[in-house]
Write a protein that binds this DNA or RNA. Structure first.
Length: 649
RNA sequence: GCUGCUGUAGCUCAGUGGUAGAGCGCGUCAUUGGUAAUGACGAGGUCGGGAGUUCAAUUCUCCCCAGCAGCACCA
């Protein structure tokens, strides 16, 4: 038999027969390792203990201490164990797929009856039984047709379909533990007992379409989380609890920022506190955009269908538009209008007024544009996904040659804004040409390259989302993450040669002839609604001082200090700090507690001592300590802090 | 839009086939207190909307609306 040489992490190399498995190797090293081993990394590939190794390789054998590998295996085995538990409890349930995801796994089942909360408990119990059986995991490679015949005979139509959709005719890997069997790439643990029985939990059931296609069967998906030990699970559950406290819907209520109600689903009623944040953010963005060379415009909310027909929205986006029919007296037919779902067609109307020269390009046009989209009911989420929202929208009219430079300028701009607003972690995605698209391959090549180069020039890494671009052009997405780890696209930059064409935008070139400009759709925050939602969650409601709707409360300790409290408030207001007096007949403890819960960043307590000394006792949100300072000192300090980042020196 | 769950006082929630309860908040009074809840008393609800079953529905059934989780969607 041929010999191969395997090199271990400590650098030693050993000779083995070709086809040796990690299990053999571990057994050759020690009994305890053979028991503890869970998998191996062979030349950077994650190997099952049973897989034969046929070539010289670097090898590392893993135990549960190797968290990355262990978590992957535990979660993957949990998926299988859960599927087995479900089929043992309800033998007529059909299995489909069950991948590992962040923190856990899910598995999709086809079952007529819905899974109830009690069912989940029963499944968990059954899973623990299976784990306690310590059934060894066995794997075999099967010919494709044999696998198809097997699943056909076992009445598992989804598995048959899966195999048929796998391209090529390579043999497939089959796995067993006990009598239960699944088609799976692996790797897996050595036996079910290697899954810690106290470190997983089934979290929820929800519907999910077979193969992610809304035209196909709705399956039932069970989500679970799993870790390598029970501390991991405990930490995770605690993290979820903490995240729930940052939820912008909860904080929005607690801080009295906004509300929503049944009569206007997906529309925000901004309260004074929330609207303060909104306008501060808008003022800030306006100043930034002015400095960034944008011209601001404002365009109509209600526009006749003719424009939407010309732009293509009428044919492609109608089901997402609020349509307004007006039955005018004496009119032969009803006037049909739509609330604008996007600002771009209107911006081209502004661009089209008067002849434009190449000297006008790039022309950066901005609008805080209110849009309405009839979003599917299930898509709505707090103020992050709504039907009425305002974009910090902008369209850059430019030539192809200017795209790369404009991209870099925009990314720099966005990075500056995100930094000002306290975001360190955001990611960029480049979505490339989709299957259904317009335009030549060359123009797509050029557009994708320009975006990639622009972002690289700005100094950021990006991830490519193959085929996720708009039908008219590629796009950059700037993604922020909410409290419980859901990603939200906020900023965007999209190249669009299509709309200028459809709406006949042109400029006079150096050569005296008419040319078509390109249009770059871009937004930095995305929408104020979504961004404020993210902002609240990122800061857990404790907004930076300049954005805090209520900045200072001056709380009197005794009634005799009330006038003085009012005087301090006036001194702060005179320099533009948002201050209010709390002279209610309540104890200072009560006032401190209430305003702390209300996330007011600074509480100034004043009693008789402060009245006599002309001082305040200042307390920062989150701090247990207070500090005695003079009125002048606190006014100077807070006045500086109240400035938006772009107004500081 | 799809699957499942939920909807009771301003908020958070308990509860029942015989038209409802707590805590907080709110109002009044007392209290003048030193950095995360002072006390007493009081007001407040067609139990999401509609229909049905029943002597009787907030409770059971159906339809609708909204919210929540996930899926799909987000040119």
């Amino acid at each position: 038999m041929a010999q191969i040489s395997l090199t271990f992490p400590d650098g030693t190399a050993r000779e083995y027969d070709a086809g040796v498995t990690a299990a053999d190797i571990a057994a050759g090293i020690s009994n305890s390792l053979a028991k503890k081993a869970i998998s191996a990394t062979v030349n950077d590939q994650h190997y099952d203990m049973q897989w034969p190794i046929t070539e010289d390789a670097q090898i590392a054998i893993h135990t549960m201490k190797d968290t990355a590998q262990a978590e992957e295996l535990v979660r993957h085995d949990c998926a299988h164990i859960m599927a087995r538990a479900v089929q043992e409890l309800w033998p007529d349930v059909k299995v489909t797929i069950g991948p590992v995801i962040k923190d856990g796994w899910y598995y999709d089942f086809d079952r007529t009856e819905p899974f109830s909360t009690e069912d989940l408990t029963a499944i968990e119990k059954k899973m623990k039984e299976i784990i306690n059986k310590r059934d060894s995991v066995r794997t075999e490679i099967w010919e494709r047709q044999r696998a198809i015949d097997f699943y056909t005979a076992n009445d598992e139509p989804y598995k048959v379909e899966l195999i048929e959709s796998i391209p090529g005719d390579e043999p497939l890997r089959m796995y067993w533990h006990g009598d239960w069997q699944d088609l799976c790439r692996g790797p897996h643990l050595q036996h079910t007992g290697q899954v810690p029985g106290d470190a997983f939990k089934l979290m929820s059931v929800a519907g999910a379409y077979w193969r992610g296609d809304s035209d196909r069967a709705m399956l039932q998906r069970i989500y679970g989380v799993a870790f390598t030990g029970k501390d991991g699970l405990k930490k995770h559950l605690h993290m979820l609890e903490e995240a729930a406290k940052r939820d912008h819907r909860k904080l929005g209520k607690e801080m009295n920022l906004f509300h929503m109600q049944e009569e206007a689903p997906g529309m925000v009623f901004w309260h004074p506190n929330g609207w303060r944040i909104y306008t501060l953010l808008q003022d800030y963005m306006r100043r930034r955009q002015d400095k960034g060379g944008y011209v601001e415009v404002n365009t109509p909310q209600v526009v006749n269908r003719k424009l939407w027909e010309a732009s293509g929205h009428w044919d492609n986006y109608q089901e997402n538009m609020f349509i307004v029919e007006v039955d005018e007296d004496h009119a032969r037919e009803k006037a049909v209008n739509a609330l604008k779902p996007m600002n771009c067609p209107c911006h081209i109307q502004v661009f089209n007024q008067g002849l434009k020269s190449y000297r006008d390009l790039p022309l950066r046009m901005a609008e805080f544009g209110s849009c309405n989209r009839y979003e599917p009911s299930g898509a709505m989420h707090g103020i992050m996904r709504v039907r009425g929202f305002t974009q910090d929208d902008g369209h850059i009219f430019c030539t192809e040659a200017q795209v790369e430079e404009e991209t870099k300028i925009f990314v720099d701009f966005l990075a500056l804004v995100y930094k000002d607003l306290g975001f360190e972690n955001w990611s960029v995605k480049l979505s490339t040409r989709p299957e259904k698209r317009v335009g030549s391959e060359e123009s797509w090549d050029q557009a994708e390259e320009a975006l990639a180069n622009g972002i690289k020039a700005a100094g950021y890494d990006f991830e490519i989302q193959e085929g996720e671009g708009a039908f008219y052009g590629p796009k950059l997405e700037f993604v922020l993450t909410d409290a419980i780890g859901r990603d939200w696209q906020c900023g965007t930059l999209q190249i669009d040669p299509n709309l200028p064409e459809r709406l006949d935008a042109s400029y006079i070139g150096e050569d005296g002839a008419r040319h078509r400009p390109l249009m770059l759709h871009r937004a930095t925050l995305g929408s104020f609604e979504r961004f404020i939602g993210i902002l609240i969650e990122e800061h857990a409601g404790k907004l930076p001082f300049w954005l805090a709707p209520r900045q200072v409360v001056v709380a009197s300790i005794v009634t005799d200090a009330n006038d003085y409290a009012q005087e301090v408030v006036e001194a702060l207001r005179a320099v533009g700090v948002r201050a209010e007096a709390d002279i209610r007949n309540e104890k200072i403890n009560y006032k401190v507690r209430e305003h702390s819960l209300g996330k007011v960043p600074v509480i100034l307590a004043v009693g008789m001592k402060e009245v006599e000394d002309r001082t305040v006792s200042a307390r920062r949100l989150g701090s247990k300590q207070s500090q005695i300072v003079t009125i002048d000192e606190i006014v100077t300090e807070l006045r500086a802090e109240a400035l938006a980042p772009d107004l500081r020196d």
